[in-house]
Each structure stands twice: as structure tokens, then as C-alpha cells.
Computed example of a mutant assay.
Amino acid sequence: MAAGDGWEAPCAGAAVPEGTSRIALTAAATELLRLLRDQHGPLMFHQSGGCCDGSAPMCYPAGEFRTGASDVLLGRLSVAGVPEPVGFWMAADQFARWRHTHLTVDVVPGRGSGFSLEAPEGVRFLIRSRLLTEEERDRLGD
């Protein structure tokens, strides 16, 4: 895939050591991603950190949202039943504020963003966060 399609290597300083994770999925998010993958093909997430809809993770067909130097790849999520990983990107300024947290993508009932693929399903993705443990911070070099 071409540059900016959501499948590039992570930005400098964002690489995650083997066995360490900045991002995870709940069972509900995993199930929804399988459904969305069946409907739309390969997927990606982006979280801008802006107001309103921008503060929620947005799910797009892979490559539909163009990432660039102002985005950080937090991870490539393995989803059971989905053949390729789902990249999770975050705006660099948002990552600077959240770099000491572990994020979990979840799903709740409600209206999602009009641009995010889950909107017609009557649910929306959201982020649950916790502080990284000291061990996790050490492994990540934070």
C-alpha cells in the first residue's frame, strides 16, 4: 500500500517493544470490528483529540484517512477472524498528552460519528484508559 494509507511504519519514538502494548480491544470491539471488516474490507482507526467526534476513535476503511507526520501509530491490533491487523493512529499532539496511558477500545450504545463506520450500527467506539504501570513505562522507554 502507498504512503499515507494507514499501513506505514510507526513514527520515531512510537515503536512498541515486543510483548508491550499501548492499545487493546474489548470483546465487544473485537466483534464489531469483525462485522465492519466483512462489510468494508481492511480497517484502521484514527483519533484526533479534537472536540466532539474528534475525541472518539474513528474507524475507517484502511487508507481512507490519510495519516502523515502529525500522526503516531500506537499499534497494529490483531483481531480474531480478521486477516490483517487494524492500525490505530493518534494525532501526535494527543499522543503527547496520553503517552503514559494504556488505551482500550470499547463499544457502547449510542450515536457514533457520521464519518466512522460503526455509526449505522447504533453504537460508537470509545476509549477507556489507565495509567501505564512502571514496568510498562520502562519497557516503552517513557
Rank of each mutant, 00 (worst) to 15 (best):
E64V: 11
M44H: 08
P109W: 02
P83C: 04
T67M: 06
C59Y: 05
E135V: 08
M58K: 15
P109N: 06
P57Q: 08
L117V: 12
G68K: 00
L73I: 09
V105Y: 05
G87M: 00
A91E: 05
S48R: 14
P85M: 00
A62T: 11
G81Q: 12
C52P: 00
R128M: 13
A119E: 15
T104R: 13
V86M: 01
G114I: 04
M44F: 08
A80Q: 15
D138K: 13
G122Y: 05
P120D: 08
H102Q: 14
W98Q: 05
L131W: 11
L73W: 04
C59R: 02
W89H: 07
M90T: 06
P57W: 07
A56N: 15
D93H: 14
Q47H: 09
F45K: 05
H102S: 14
I127E: 02
Q94W: 12
R128E: 15
L77F: 13
L132A: 02
V105P: 02
R124A: 12
W98P: 00
G87E: 08
P85T: 03
E134W: 05
R66F: 02
S48W: 08
P57E: 06
M58Y: 07
E134I: 04
G87V: 00
W89T: 02
E135A: 15
F125G: 11
V86D: 01
H46L: 04
Y60L: 01
R124T: 05
E121V: 02
V123S: 11
D138M: 07
L117C: 12
L131I: 00
G68I: 01
R137H: 01
L43F: 11
I127H: 13
A91P: 00
F88L: 11
C59E: 03
V82G: 05
L140M: 07
T104D: 03
Q47C: 15
A56P: 00
E84Q: 15
G54Y: 03
